[in-house]
C-alpha cells in the first residue's frame, strides 16, 4: 500500500462566473521516501491539489468527490481532532513565501517549539532543545542564539530554512512543498534544494514537490506528474519524462525553456493560453493549443494510458510511463511528429 493515495479527486470553486473545476478527477499515489513532482503552468491545479491533501481549502473551494487515503486512512472522513493530528505530525507543508508562513510577532524558536508542543507531550525545555537541534539541522548558524530572533531578522533563504525546520519538527512521513524556492535567489535556492534532498534521505520522508521550474524538478525528484487544466496528462520517472516526453504539452513545456549553451534564436512556444476552467474545451483539453490536434481530439477526451500498451493502468507502478493522448490508443490518423534531441555538453562542464 502506498503512503498516499489520491483517487479521482475533484475540487471545485464556486465563483461569480460559474463553477471552476480546478482539479478534475486526478489519481496518483506516493510511496514512502519517494520524491514526486507536480509540474504545470499556473492555474493547472497544482497548489489546489496540495491544499486538498491537508484539507486546507477554503471557501469558495470544495472537495466535491474522490478519495484521499493517507497510510490507509480516509483523510476526507477525519474528524477535526484527527485532522489536527494528521497535519504537521504526518503531513507537513512548506509554502512558497516564507515571510507569510511565519508569525512576525513570535521568535522563530518559539514557533518551532510550539509546533512540537502541539503534537507531543513534552516539557517547555525539551521543546526548546529540540527546536534548537532542528535549527542546527537546517544549517542555521549559531542556532541557540538565533532561536530568540524574530522572522524579520532572517533573510528569505534563512526564513525558508526555519519553515522547513518547523515542517520537520514532528518527523512527518510526507512533506508537501509548494514552490519552496520560487521566491529565492538561485544561490540560496541551491542550498535549500540540497537541504531538502539530504533531509528527505535522512528521515526517509516522502516529498510532493510543486514547481514550475523544470530545472529544480530534474535535480530533486524521482517521478514527475504533469498537470494541465486540472488533469494529470503525463506521469513518468524523471529521466524518462525529460528524455522521452510523450504528451505534446510536456514536449512544448520542455522546448520552451531557455537552456544554457543553446543558440536557438527563437524559443518554441505553446500557442494560446490555459483554458478558462469554467468552460473547458471539449475532448482533449489541450487540443486548441496542440500542434498535432485532429478531429478525434476535439470530440473525445483521451484517458491516461500506458504509452507502450495503450491500456489504462488502474494501479500504475511507480515506473510506469502514462500519458493522456489519443496517440497511444492509436486514435490519431497522422500521429505525433517531434523529435527529442539530447545535446551533450549543454550547460556547464
Amino acid at each position: 500500500m502506498a503512503l498516499l493515495e489520491v483517487e479521482d479527486l475533484v475540487v471545485q470553486f464556486y465563483t461569480e462566473d460559474g463553477t471552476v473545476r480546478a482539479v478534475d478527477g486526478i489519481s496518483y499515489e506516493i510511496d514512502r521516501g519517494e520524491t514526486v513532482a507536480l509540474v504545470g503552468e499556473s492555474g493547472a491545479g497544482k497548489s489546489v491539489t496540495c491544499l486538498s491533501l491537508l484539507r486546507l481549502l477554503e471557501r469558495p473551494g470544495e472537495i466535491v468527490s474522490g478519495e484521499i487515503r493517507f497510510d490507509g486512512r480516509d483523510v476526507l472522513g477525519l474528524s477535526d481532532e484527527e485532522l489536527r493530528d494528521l497535519r504537521g505530525n504526518e503531513i507537513a507543508m512548506v509554502f512558497q513565501d516564507p515571510s507569510a508562513a511565519l508569525n512576525p510577532v513570535y521568535t522563530v524558536g518559539e514557533q518551532i517549539a510550539e509546533a512540537i508542543r502541539a503534537h507531543e507531550d513534552v516539557t517547555d525545555e525539551t521543546a526548546r532543545r529540540r527546536a534548537i537541534d532542528l535549527l542546527e539541522r537546517v544549517e542555521i548558524p549559531d542556532a541557540a542564539s538565533r532561536y530568540s530572533e524574530y522572522p524579520h531578522e532572517f533573510s528569505g533563504g534563512m526564513q525558508q530554512r526555519v519553515v522547513i525546520a518547523m515542517a520537520l519538527s514532528c518527523e512527518p512521513d510526507l512533506l508537501v512543498c509548494d514552490e519552496p524556492t520560487t521566491a529565492l535567489d538561485v544561490t540560496i535556492e541551491a542550498g535549500i534544494l540540497e537541504l531538502l534532498e539530504d533531509l528527505a534521505a535522512e528521515f526517509d520522508t516522502a516529498i510532493q514537490l510543486v514547481s514550475h521550474d523544470l530545472g529544480v524538478v530534474a535535480g530533486l525528484c524521482d517521478r514527475v506528474q504533469v498537470m494541465y487544466a486540472g488533469e494529470i496528462v503525463e506521469r513518468a520517472p524523471t529521466e524518462e519524462l525529460y528524455y522521452d516526453p510523450k504528451h505534446p504539452y510536456t514536449v512544448g513545456l520542455m522546448a520552451s525553456i531557455p537552456r544554457i549553451g543553446d543558440d536557438r534564436d527563437e524559443l518554441p512556444t505553446i500557442p494560446g493560453s490555459m483554458p478558462d476552467l469554467v468552460d473547458v474545451p471539449t475532448g482533449c483539453r489541450f487540443h486548441p493549443r496542440c500542434p498535432y490536434a485532429e478531429e478525434a481530439c476535439r470530440l473525445r477526451a483521451p484517458s491516461l494510458v500506458d504509452v507502450e500498451t495503450g491500456v489504462p493502468a488502474d494501479e500504475p507502478a511507480p515506473n510506469d510511463h502514462l500519458a493522456a493522448c489519443h496517440e497511444y490508443t492509436d486514435d490519431l490518423v497522422d500521429g505525433l511528429d517531434y523529435e527529442v534531441v539530447v545535446e551533450d555538453g549543454g550547460g556547464l562542464e
Binding site: 548558524p141 521550474d213 530534474a218 529521466e239 556547464l348
Partner: peptide
C-alpha cells in the same frame, strides 16, 4: 551564480558551488 542554475536535465552532474552565508 552560473553553477547554481538548476539544470533541466536529470542526469546533469555539475558541481554546484553553494555560497556560504548570505
Amino acid at each position: 551564480l552560473l553553477s547554481a542554475i538548476p539544470e533541466p536535465d536529470p542526469l546533469w552532474e555539475g558541481d554546484r558551488i553553494v555560497l556560504e552565508g548570505s
